[in-house]
Design a protein around this nucleic acid. Structure first.
Lengths: 172, 172
DNA sequence: CCTCCTTCGCGAATGATCTTCGATTCTATT
DNA sequence: AATAGAATCGAAGATCATTCGCGAAGGAGG
């Protein structure tokens, strides 16, 4: 390790290859990878008008800075035996609101849970679940939610459809 | 005989590659790719105890059957200038419920929209949005939702947190 | 029981892609 | 103008994806 490296490492700021701000090229890269994570690096580089090695370095920097949090396959829930989706709003007991994180972690462990919204207002949580059928939905609410001492009440709404458009686009 | 043969023989379900049913190997592949879409094919093959070419054929089959719908990068919304998330429930005018699909497509076009829940009950839609700040949230509701003739009313709840646990789930 | 036929799995070869590296160019500062 | 730090580039080598022919397993029908 040389002097400049030790100076960088000793500084309290994030060890960015570049500054914290994103330029237009970064935003383009993010948009392309959100749309299709399998897009080859050289195709992204061509679209951005930069060299492949430069594009690769930028993508790695985005990952190391936590801007790209990961890459995930989008699997059809119905194809894996989860044909029914629902939103369940959960009210907690007032005294249980000290351990919100614990309950959130419990929810995250449930296999049916696809998303957890920790929301302001009269409710505490809104969870998005995918289950095989209505019997499994009832079983989930009865045996995994209502029995919990923290839970004051639940309200379930079945989903007709759920769409996730192109995912998060950089502000434009 | 090898390990994979005995595993397949011990499982009761059908093992069609072209058929509609998924066997244990398919489910393992799906789980691994959901967790990390960048996982190399040969690593998946090793984890499943099958040859790389066989694994590749199975993954392609899963894609062609629409079970794997795509691969997407997970981008931190706060890093791209969308530090505020909210859930907006939308009630439609009764006469506007004939063109639900049209309105859903309109919502999908909005850059701030991350997810659209088409829900049963007293509300019609619940949309998950990510915006830069509260001013942008107010602007979104006022200029993109309330002004639409189909919209009878909206109700907005700011999110403290949103977690998608499907990405880190170790097992079913 | 035998043969045909389909489906699936396998290893090897080839082409594409990823990843690293040293050198060059750019930019901000002195 | 000179310097230092950062970003870019092209090329090389390692890794990976994809295709292909072949063989084994399981049914269907004779």
């Amino acid at each position: 390790m040389n002097i400049s490296e030790s100076l960088r490492n000793s500084s309290a700021g994030p060890k960015n290859l570049r500054g914290a701000e994103l330029d237009d090229t970064d935003r383009l890269i993010l948009r392309l990878l959100q749309d299709d994570a399998k897009l080859p690096n050289n195709a992204i580089a061509a679209a951005a008008g930069i060299a492949a090695s430069t594009c690769h370095a930028r993508i790695r920097s985005l990952q190391e800075r936590g801007i790209i949090r990961g890459y995930h396959a989008d699997v059809d829930p119905a194809a894996v035996g989860r044909g029914l989706q629902a939103l369940i709003s959960i009210r907690l007991q007032a005294h249980a609101r000290a351990n919100l994180t614990r309950f959130e972690e419990y929810l995250a462990e449930l296999p049916a849970v696809e998303g957890i919204f920790f929301v302001t207002g009269d409710r505490d949580f809104l969870i998005h679940v995918a289950v095989p059928d209505s019997a499994a939905l009832r079983e989930l609410v009865a045996s995994n939610l209502s029995v919990r001492p923290e839970v004051a009440g639940t309200s379930t709404a079945v989903l007709f459809d759920y769409v996730r458009p192109g995912t998060v686009r950089p502000e434009d």
